[in-house]
Design a binder for these strands. Structure first.
Lengths: 232, 232
DNA sequence: TAGATTGTTAATCGATTAACAATC
DNA sequence: TAGATTGTTAATCGATTAACAATC
């Protein structure tokens, strides 16, 4: 293969460049992928068939070079010389994101936020299904959240032993979060979506996605505060 | 002004190094500050008086060098040679984050999520107060969310003209988000907390904090998916 | 083919980490 | 003082952007 520029020195042969998806996906890219998918799906539904990286990048809000670089991590995303085909990209991203899978979620904490999560239709449509809800307040246990009956927190461990669960969702006070997280981890749940305002200590093969609403709001207020002190 | 790096033996006097907070705060630091504050406040309440950067960094989950670097952006955070004093740090961070201010929030979208946000006590305790709620569904207008009565979305603009509002909160379907955001912007609101799954186009002096729950969950599921395909 | 677009390498930019002088 | 710790500069690392060869 003619590959490579290979200036002065390094006479060595680069015998293979497999490119396959063993390449590490940057953290930031993992966050952009859902956005890519959302916008591409929208275009597809509107019947758009093709779009250039420049066009797409405007709609998505990233630089054209970044879009091309990002898609370069995966196979079946575009072909050199041709403009991108929307449906192909959608299919490739659905595959990459694992959207053909059904993920089973268990909610811990049946407060306002927890109820909002279970009742949000968008999740089920994308294959994320809440299969059980737990809480430790006596007056909440036995009530319904959507179609699910709230179960006693003390029985979470038993439940997990007899049901496959993909993602544990923590929507409860910070004080209780670590303990419940431990239960999820002990029973083999490998992903936790955490809305409690606290850091969780988990083994490194367990994934945690933090969604700290208070921190997010404080960060916004901070930026507002500094922009006001600076500008006017 | 004299500024400048001026290499080649720097015989010149550095007559002043104002250090003052004109330095640009990195985006990522703005996100870490609420975490710093939360943990420091907790330590303060537990009566801890002093802690080293190493100790703090373990509790917070950042590198010691990063903590020192971050605090170096601000005044009154520690003194060379001394260990950090928790109360001083708390006070400095409260000042930096603008926590002595009261922020007035208006919610657009009185669905499950919107209700959860208004009903969450933690916000009010930190000085973030919801002062009005709007929705456009006839059967929701006039109902109560906490102590607030839901008002007709059509009257949002009028409301904003006669009340100072710091932050607009969007908890409504993506299709409606841009229009409501435009209303906020037109009436001078400079910060938007956006839970709708859509990008918002706003003037560059308007701050937007996105909180895309679906994207967050998809990103987590994606990482779970890839870690499963890779490892076992 | 000529023009246009992607894929991919190299350059730039920004953020994190390491190192160490200044300080107590 | 000696030991320990911060503040701050320099080095490293990673992510974004630019450039251009490969391709249609």
């Amino acid at each position: 293969m003619p590959r490579k520029t290979r200036l002065a020195g390094q006479p060595e042969e680069v015998d293979e460049v497999p490119k396959q998806n063993g390449n590490r996906i940057p953290e930031r890219l993992a966050q952009r992928l859902p956005v890519y998918y959302r916008i591409l799906l929208e275009l597809s539904e509107r019947g758009v068939e093709r779009a250039s990286s420049t066009d797409l990048s405007h709609r998505i809000g990233v630089a054209p070079a970044q879009l091309r670089q990002d898609l370069g991590y995966f196979d079946n995303c575009g072909q050199q010389g041709y403009v991108y085909r929307i449906d192909d990209l959608c299919a490739a991203l659905a595959e990459i994101l694992g959207l053909d899978h059904r993920y089973k979620l268990v909610l811990a904490g049946a407060g306002h936020l927890g109820k909002a999560l279970v009742n949000y239709d968008g999740f089920r449509r994308r294959g994320y299904q809440f299969v059980a809800v737990f809480d430790n307040a006596a007056d909440v246990i036995g009530t319904r959240v959507g179609v699910l009956e709230v179960q006693a927190a003390a029985t979470l461990s038993d439940y997990l032993r007899s049901h496959r669960v993909d993602i544990g969702v923590l929507a409860l006070p910070a004080e209780a979060a670590q303990k419940v997280a431990d239960t999820f981890v002990e029973q083999g749940v490998k992903a936790i979506w955490n809305f409690a305002s606290t850091r969780l200590l988990v083994p490194e093969d367990v994934l945690v996605e933090h969604q700290h609403l208070s921190d997010s709001l404080m960060s916004l207020a901070f930026r507002l505060h500094t922009s006001r002190s600076a500008a006017p």
